[in-house]
């Protein structure tokens, strides 16, 4: 809407809370460069030890699928029940499978 934004570029913040776990989207922040983005993300989203590692990425660099196209976008997987282990019959008495 506004054309005079001087609030610095928008970044999305992803935080890894523990070693071995995936980075999870936490929210967004404004910053002029990568270092400021990391420091702002730290100050805004990890004031109580919520993270051990942070990713930041410029918001306009993210592509996203559309929720209203959800059905058709994901339908290639809809008719492939054989991808799930429960599709298969295992003879009675077989163990550890």
């Amino acid at each position: 809407m506004s054309t005079t934004d001087n609030q610095l570029p928008l970044w999305e913040v992803f935080i890894q809370s523990k070693s071995g776990t995936p980075h999870k989207h936490a929210g967004s922040i404004h910053a002029s460069d990568k270092n400021m983005a990391l420091e702002n993300a730290r100050d805004i989203y990890t004031r109580r030890g919520e993270g051990r590692n942070i990713w930041v990425v410029l918001s306009d660099q993210i592509a996203a699928s559309k929720t209203e196209d959800e059905a058709e976008f994901f339908d290639p997987a809809d008719d492939k029940v054989y991808r799930h282990p429960s599709f298969y019959k295992v003879p009675d008495g077989v163990k550890n499978m």
Binding site: M1, S2, Q7, G27, I29, I44
Partner: peptide
């Protein structure tokens, strides 16, 4: 700041 960010997702700028 969390809330400004949430509002910005609706198309209004911080400015």
């Amino acid at each position: 700041l969390y809330l400004y960010s949430a509002a910005e997702t609706l198309g209004i700028s911080r400015d």
